[in-house]
């Protein structure tokens, strides 16, 4: 039986779906029974969603600068 501390240590891998099946199920079982860990897991999941969103929000570079770079350095 996993302790809350074990589950906290495994949460990141659990979110990545990186755990062997038996471990994955053990974490899941613990989350079903433990309110504190469930809340912690949900907050980690939200954190991860926010980080991913930050990655998607990054805007591109200006096309003009890319064109200048290309024209001055293109291999011939």
């Amino acid at each position: 039986m996993l302790s809350c501390r074990d589950v906290a240590d495994l949460t990141s891998d659990y979110l990545n779906r990186d755990l062997p099946l038996r471990r994955h199920l053990a974490v899941r079982l613990h989350l079903l029974m433990c309110v504190g860990c469930r809340r912690y897991y949900r907050q980690m999941r939200t954190t991860l969603a926010m980080l991913r969103q930050l990655g998607r929000d990054t805007t591109g570079a200006s096309a003009d600068r890319a064109r200048d770079l290309f024209r001055s350095h293109r291999s011939v």
């Binding site: 302790s3 809350c4 501390r5 074990d6 906290a8 240590d9 433990c34 309110v35 504190g36 860990c37 809340r39 912690y40 949900r42 907050q43 999941r45 939200t46 969603a49 926010m50 969103q53």
Partner: peptide, 28 residues
Amino acid sequence: ADAAENFTEDGRRNAPPREWKMTPERLL
């Protein structure tokens, strides 16, 4: 990094983490 979570000696949580004031939807 993990010590801040406050576990008892046998690895149980001292208290559940407090709820956040915003829902995930609003946060995003």
